[in-house]
């Protein structure tokens, strides 16, 4: 089934800050729930079925796994949000025929794309990010820092059916936020 055309006006876009606020709220909820279960063990009060019979070490393992999963989903959301913002900016520069160097680089690249790629251009290798990097409008390490987040984002977003990328446990969501935010802020107005 072909993907629908990109349209930020009717999408449900999330900003990086919205995602980070959601993430922090979820972390607080996990911390509170873990504390409540630990208190229940101490006080001998009932727990939700999922915790019945677990030791304290088992509960630690459960919440470690929940936190890891939350971190991975937050990373996916952050990187995807930044990707959407970069694509919005790309289409804006191409559609409005802006005259700055980045816009001209995008427009030149756009002209040579096939019709399907004009609607849904590649993003990473051979795509918008390469044009952004080659346009020399920001330090290359800013694009490189963001690119390191793409492997974990693809791994989570495409079903985790290949070897776990090393970046997944090296980058926490706060780090991913900084890399995404750094890139978006570096894009010239």
């Amino acid at each position: 089934m072909p993907l629908p055309p990109l349209d930020p006006e009717i999408g449900e876009r999330q900003t990086l800050d919205e995602i980070r606020n959601w993430y922090r709220g979820m972390v607080e909820a996990l911390v509170d729930q873990r504390a409540a279960v630990m208190r229940a063990i101490q006080n001998g009060t009932p727990v939700a079925a999922r915790f019945l019979g677990l030791t304290q070490a088992g509960i630690d393992a459960y919440f470690d796994a929940q936190r890891q999963e939350l971190d991975r989903l937050a990373t996916l959301n952050l990187v995807a949000s930044a990707e959407a913002s970069i694509k919005d900016d790309y289409f804006h520069r191409v559609g409005k025929q802006l005259k700055d160097s980045l816009s001209r680089a995008y427009q030149q690249w756009y002209r040579d794309l096939s019709a399907p790629k004009k609607r849904r251009p590649d993003f990473d290798e051979g795509g918008i990010l390469d044009v952004l990097k080659d346009a020399q409008v920001m330090n290359n390490h800013i694009v490189g820092n963001y690119r390191e987040c793409l492997r974990p984002r693809h791994w989570v977003g495409h079903g985790r059916n290949w070897e776990t990328p090393v970046e997944i446990d090296r980058l926490d969501p706060d780090d991913v936020y900084d890399r995404c935010d750094g890139l978006l802020r570096a894009i010239p107005a």
Partner: peptide, 12 residues
């Protein structure tokens, strides 16, 4: 035996 401090129970 695993322990006395068990969630929702008095031992395991």
């Amino acid at each position: 035996p695993v322990g006395r401090n068990i969630a929702g129970a008095s031992g395991r």
